[in-house]
């Protein structure tokens, strides 16, 4: 099944449900393609139906990588299966969505191939005999170009939101099954069933207005000030990860890749720099208002309204002003 010079996209599914970033990555591969054939693969056990769905996209081939030992994810089985798949397909580029699962195995996969994974990329350009990958550094404050030249396979994982799912082109492609040779003795991890900590007492996903607080608030004793703003607005209170890590607000109020994904009418980001892990959870907001002292904070890239200044002055003034108008 050799398709030299093509792109291999490794899609992610859990118990038969797609990870939506997989489709973004596939859309990226289609755009980059420009004549390069795109092969899309899905790993698991009994994933024929998912592979058939892939066959309905504008790609050269869909592959079901099927094995009983791929039923539950382990880095060892996944790496072994994909090592064999990459050897069979011989792509110039392997693209993966930058999910938590990909972060767990893709560096291992690339290392086993003696290659380098360029992780969490926001843009890919074909350049000469290789690729230029653009990724963010310093929590989104700067961008960096990474050039991977020469013979493939090159490996890259694609950041959430880098490509739009709605640009994904439909088509009709043949579907194949690939049966990797796996041995239970290769799998060193003994995995238990995934679980959720507890039923969520706070559902931020339905909130119309959210006031979210980040590191800029400096201390637990200042949270009350932001809470007062939320109360005046009739908004839900939320937070970025460090606030919950410190125990200043409960984990269930966390917005971001490890917390909730919200899409309110207005999202107030108070003292939040806007690292990608946070943006993933809130960029579906219709309107974003950012209050931050650093004019270069990445949050201003997705904010509709920006208030650069001292949140300890702005937040109380805003609370007072809102109370006047209600």
């Amino acid at each position: 099944m050799s398709s030299s010079d093509g792109i291999l996209v490794v899609m992610e599914q859990t118990r038969g449900a797609w990870h939506k970033m997989s489709w973004e990555t596939l859309a990226g591969a289609q755009q980059l393609g420009g004549g390069m054939p795109v092969t899309a693969a899905v790993l698991g056990h009994d994933v024929g139906a998912l592979a058939a769905e892939l066959g309905g996209k504008q790609i050269a081939k869909a592959i079901a990588v099927d094995h009983a030992l791929l039923a539950s994810y382990t880095a060892d089985a996944c790496t072994a299966a994909l090592t064999q798949l990459v050897a069979a397909v011989q792509p110039a580029l392997v693209l993966l969505p930058h999910t938590y699962q990909v972060r767990d195995f893709a560096p291992k996969l690339a290392t086993r191939a003696g290659r380098v994974l360029v992780s969490d990329v926001i843009r890919i350009e074909a350049a000469g005999d290789g690729f230029v990958f653009v990724r963010q550094l310093f929590q989104g404050k700067l961008n960096g170009d990474f050039r991977a030249a020469g013979a493939g396979p090159h490996f890259a994982s694609v950041q959430a939101g880098a490509y739009r799912v709605d640009t994904l082109a439909a088509g009709s492609a043949p579907v194949e099954t690939f049966a990797p040779a796996l041995d239970a003795a290769q799998i060193r991890a003994r995995v238990e069933e995934p679980f959720r900590e507890s039923a969520r007492a706070v559902d931020l996903t339905a909130a119309e207005l959210i006031v979210s607080v980040g590191r800029g608030i400096k201390g637990r004793e200042n949270i009350g000030m932001v809470e007062a703003l939320a109360q005046a607005l009739g908004a839900e209170l939320a937070a970025s990860r460090p606030i919950c890590d410190n125990g200043w607000l409960p984990m269930e109020r966390q917005v971001g890749s490890s917390g909730q994904t919200v899409s309110p009418k207005v999202y107030f980001a108070v003292g939040i720099s806007g690292a990608i892990q946070h943006q993933v959870g809130m960029k579906g907001a219709k309107t974003v208002v950012a209050i931050n002292k650093d004019p270069n904070a990445p949050i201003f890239e997705i904010a509709d309204y920006g208030l650069v200044g001292d949140l300890f002055e702005i937040v109380p003034a805003l609370t007072e002003e809102i109370k006047k108008h209600k």
Binding site: Y100, Q101, R190, E192, R196, S257, Q260
Partner: peptide, 12 residues
Amino acid sequence: ELEDGWFQFVEL
């Protein structure tokens, strides 16, 4: 830690 509030125990 998995995504979206999910966790998993693993023994190594």
